[in-house]
Structures are given as C-alpha cells and as structure tokens.
Design a protein around this nucleic acid. Structure first.
Lengths: 339, 339
DNA sequence: ACTACCAACTTAATGCATTAAGATATATGA
DNA sequence: TCATATATCTTAATGCATTAAGTTGGTAGT
C-alpha cells in the first residue's frame, strides 16, 4: 500500500478532499465531531498531514528561510561574529517555527532555492556579486544585514558613528595611526590599500568605519599615511598577523592601531607583544565587533560591541514582521586594557 | 503580467509543455535548434527554469539535505566540534550542489520538513528522543553520525577503542582515576553518576568511551570510585569547571582525569592550575575530540583527534552514495604536555 | 515499393494539496 | 408559515511541472 494522501484519506472516509484539508487548516469550516473523526482516522492510516511540498507549491510559502552568508559556509561557521549572528537567527526562527537553510555567498545561482523558501536574510554582501543582482530582482522577501539594497528592509548599526566613537576614545593629538581594514579592495592577500580602487560593493560596512576613523582623526588634526591603511581579505589570524607585522615595523611606528574586527585586533596585539611592545604604553589598540574571546586575553581589548546574536534575532524578527524599514541597532563602546 | 510558467512559455512558443520541460531536463529529446530557440526565448521572457517546488513535488527530491543536530542550533554553532563537522558537511554539499537545512534536535516534529528534503544526516542522537522514533519510520534516507539506528547507514569512529587507547597512554599502575563524562545520565547539571540510571539512548558514544576507559583500567588493576565518575550535561566551561572542582577536591585526589571532550579537559586543566597543581607531574589529563584551541594553551592537551570536518565530509558523501554501510573513520591519539 | 525504425514532438495522466464558489439542510425570526 | 441566515460539506479550478506512451514524417534497407 502506498503512502496515504489527502485524496486517499478522503476516499477512505467518504468525504471530500476539501474537508480533510479544512480539518488540518481551517477547523472552523467543519463540525467538531467530523474533525475529530478525521484526525483520528488519519493517525490510524498513517497520514501525518498534508504534504508540505504540495502545500508549498499551492500556498507559495514553505516556512523555510534562507540565510545567505557573505562567504562559504565553511568560513562563516568558524567566524565567531558570524556564528553569533547565526545563533540569534536560529533562536528567533525556532520561536517562529520556521526552518533555516544556509546558503553560501559563493554560489552562483539564487534560483536553485528561490522557489523553496519564503525569502532571504543576507548577512553581509555576498562575495559573489552576481547574487546581488539576483537579489535585487527577487520577488520574495529580502532583508539585508550589514549592507543595503535599495528598497529592501535592512538591519545595521551606525558603523560610521561607532568607528568614530572608538577612534575618539583611543586617539591622542600626537598619535601615529594605522588602520587594519577588512575587505577594502579587491585583493586576496593582506596589503596596503595605496592607490588600489576601493571595492565598493563588498565593503560598505568597512568604508563607513573608515569614514568614522577619518572623521575622528580629522578633528584631532591627524592624517593617515598612505602605507598605514591596510587591506585584510579575511578576518583571521594569518592575514591579520601579516598586516600587523608590516605596519608595526614601519617608521615612524604607529602608536595606535584601529582594527576593523576583534580577531584582527587580537592578532595584532599578539604580534605587538612578540615585538616587545608595551600595551597600552607604546601602542594602543581598538577593535570592532565584541567577541567573548577578547575578555579571556590580556590586555583586554577596547572595542565596539555590536551584539551579533541580538542582530540575528532582530533580523529574523524584522524578516517576519513584513515591515520594510531600515533598522539601526544600538552598539556599545567598551574600553579595555588595550587603550 | 504574472510570472511565466512552463505552460505559458510553451504557449508563447507554440510547443507542448513536455518539450519545454525536456529542453531543461533531457536535451537529447529534442533537436538542438529548437532547444536553443526555447532557451533564448526563456531568458527573453524572464523564465528561469522549472519551478523547484513543483519539481520537488513531482520528482520527490529537492536537493535539500537536512542536518539534524543533537541540540539547539544555538548550542551547536558555538561548539567547536559540531561546527567543524558542519563545515565538512557544508563543503561536501557545496560540491554536490545541494543545499543545507539546519534542524534542531529539540524540535518535536520531523514532518514539518520531511516532505521538503531528500533526507537526514543526524549528528548525534537528538536530544528530543521523540525524533528517534520518527527517524526510524522515515521513508527518506537517514544517515546517523556518532550513533546508530538499526538498518541505517552511519559514520562513526571506534569510540571504545579510541578511549581505551587514550587511557592506556596516560595511565600508570598506581593512579587515582576520575572520569569527566559527557551526558551519561538524565540530569541537567554536573554531578556524580553514582547510582542514577544510565541514559542509554542519548549517550551511546559516551558509554562506549566509558567502556574503553574501563577496559584500560581493568588491565592495570585500577578501579573507578563511585564518586569519581561524573556526568556533565553540556560540553562547556561552566559545567566542566563545576565537575573538575568537585573531583579535584576529593581525597585521595585523582592523579589522572579522563575527559570525554577537549573543552571539558581544557576547563579541568584551568581549574587544576588555579588549585596550584602541576601538570603533568601531579595530574595528567587526556581529552577527546581534537580541537585547535588545545594547541594554543599550555600545557597542550593529549587527546584523541577525530577530525570532525572530515567526518562531516564523509557523512555527506555517504549520504549521497546511497550505500547502506556502517563506516568507521580513523582517529589519532596525539600526546601533548598534559600527560 | 514496402517494412522497419528513428528522430522529434505531443497527449494526457500524474504528483498532492488549497480555496473560492456552490449546494443542502437545519435553525431563527417575524 | 415563509423567507433568511447559518453551519456544514462538496465541486471543480488551480498551483507547476514530469514522463510514459502515442503520433507523425522521413530515412534506410532490400
């Protein structure tokens, strides 16, 4: 005997398919007695509700939400900030009884899943820029986080202001400043930005932060040397150390490092300590993100805390709400021993 | 004008729907000329291939694979071992052009997604035991990792032997042994197992490891005191520290700690050092799993490395292969400064 | 010239369910 | 008692595509 369907159950009970469907979806459309009879007959027959794939085809919604990560899943799951975000999304989605589908930002084709999902939460601009065009045209709901798409709802923090605040808190009038930036240009290794063209699409967050740093520096009359603005392709130990070593061996040696992620800042501090530098006496460091790990190391890191898990929850809630506004979440500047 | 469908495209071109379908799915069924005409007409019309939801309904497969985690997504994403595993799965799935849906082991109902996916990769027995029954009866492909379901393919390591090996490597004839076990009984806090009933379903891995420890101890004539076998509900710092503190203040004080995860072992070492104990002189510690973090701390941890990312890849490959065997993956005992 | 076969399409059944609109019967109110 | 409203169920159109089986025209072989 094959798997029972709505139709076969209906026939077995001598009622119409509409009634069975209503028994599951609109209890007010039939008598209580019949409904109970149907429901118990269903368990009897091993029918556990309408087929979700058919339902999804008919209703046009599945209860599955895709989260598009900026990079490969691989990288994302190992990044503390991204996985915090994912935790938040997961928590809220569980509350909503929805399902989470992970989608890599390296993928080329959105429409391998578009039909399956209720929409997309995009965490950071996808590495494959082709996806952006597809997202723009997508008929389904699209919500962006940490970047913007015209006409689409978004969840962000005020990166410019946050970066400004962090710089103001750490800078002094006579400082030599270096910036360890994240994904500023289109290069796969750590290197000074110099005159390479800025990578507009992928890095709006980074550029805002840079603007903030520069506003703060401007107010103090400080300028950023050409070779003191570095591009780091991925927020990890290796790439950060390369940049930190280079920057800290320049002369005049920087007295302040403005870092666009905590992981970068942490690595930079390690390098500095290895070079025998005193923190914060000879070098002050400020990070960005706010991750638990910075609390376990000494000196503890001054940083902008942006509570990625809350951001994830907010994103999932905003996705569900149907509202199309651009949300700005609060952040918090927390000073540690590094400044 | 509404979204184009296979039917509307067919009408526009004056051919049958079967032909359009074949143009996408079975190119050998129509002439090259017509196919190209159709394909270009499709881009013209903004039709980007057959609707996946309908396709899934018809074909009965979607290209989506669900990974059922043992706990909440929240916990899983933050656990280094689980996220390593997830990375591996994601990597292999990307290769196969399949999609990854994350499913919490706390969920009550499998059939909210069964119809959407091609099957399930279960990473550890789900915390909600009700799911196990549902998985047993599930018509779709089910592959288990780190536990077994009768008649289903699985991916494991030989936990008993691995635990045995690790214990043999660290134990000496006059040792006082304590075991910090993971999820041995049904309790939400850290506590001695004592005479609580073992939690069979959820902890097969842990029980195998315990068997391995005990075999090794038996060969050396060592026994495990009643209050020296501890249950830890979750592999995290807090629960591990509670157990470690308790065990290390017993007398006679243990000279060896057999820990069922590296996170537990790491926390235990921290506690030991705080108590002023010398490692490995006064206390030897061995862990389980193999995570990068243990290489950054001193003393470095002796542990069983099980390469969770490879396990993830193997699981995704085995899922795809259709083979129904029970795979045993290699592990590696790596000795560090802790023993 | 006739059969056989192939290439290239089409027909129509099928997968599983939702839902607006229609049909009955029973109850309500004046 | 008659018209109207309500509760309860059914009919049938619809969502979008896959695929086995059928049709047609043409080529090849003898």
């Amino acid at each position: 005997m094959s798997k029972p369907t709505l139709k076969s159950v209906a026939k077995a009970l001598g009622v119409s398919t509409a009634t069975i469907s209503n028994a599951f979806n609109r209890p007010d459309q039939l008598s209580v007695a019949l409904r109970e009879k149907i429901l118990s007959a269903c368990t009897e027959l091993g029918y556990d509700g309408p087929n979700k794939a058919a339902q999804s085809l008919r209703k046009g919604s599945s209860g599955i939400v895709a989260v598009i990560l900026s990079d490969s899943l691989e990288y994302m799951v190992s990044d503390p900030v991204a996985s915090q975000f994912l935790q938040g999304v997961a928590r809220e989605l569980e509350r909503q009884q929805k399902h989470l589908l992970l989608f890599s930002g390296n993928s080329t084709n959105l429409d391998t899943i578009t039909d399956f999902v209720d929409g997309f939460i995009c965490y950071g601009a996808p590495r494959n820029l082709g996806l952006i065009g597809q997202l723009r045209q997508c008929k389904k709901r699209v919500l962006t986080v940490d970047f913007d798409l015209p006409g689409r709802p978004s969840v962000n923090i005020d990166n410019e202001q946050a970066a400004y605040d962090s710089a103001v808190a750490v800078l002094k009038p006579d400082d030599v400043v270096a910036v360890l930036g994240l994904r500023l240009i289109d290069a796969l290794d750590s290197r000074p930005v110099a005159d390479a063209p800025m990578w507009d699409n992928l890095s709006s967050v980074s550029h805002r932060r840079l603007d903030g740093y520069q506003r703060a520096m401007g107010e103090l009359g400080l300028t950023l040397a050409d070779d003191a603005l570095w591009h780091i392709p991925e927020s990890n130990q290796h790439f950060a150390e390369v940049a930190a070593k280079a920057v800290l061996s320049q002369s005049p040696r920087p007295t302040v490092l403005l870092c666009m992620s905590d992981l970068i800042a942490l690595s930079a501090m390690r390098v500095a300590l290895q070079l025998g530098l005193q923190i914060p006496e000879q070098l002050r460091v400020v990070g960005f993100d706010g991750i638990e790990e910075t609390l376990r190391y000494h000196p503890t890191l001054s940083s902008v805390w942006q509570f990625s898990d809350k951001k994830g929850e907010a994103a999932a809630r905003a996705f569900q709400s149907g509202l199309d506004d651009n949300q700005l979440l609060p952040y918090e500047l927390r000073l540690g021993e590094s400044s």
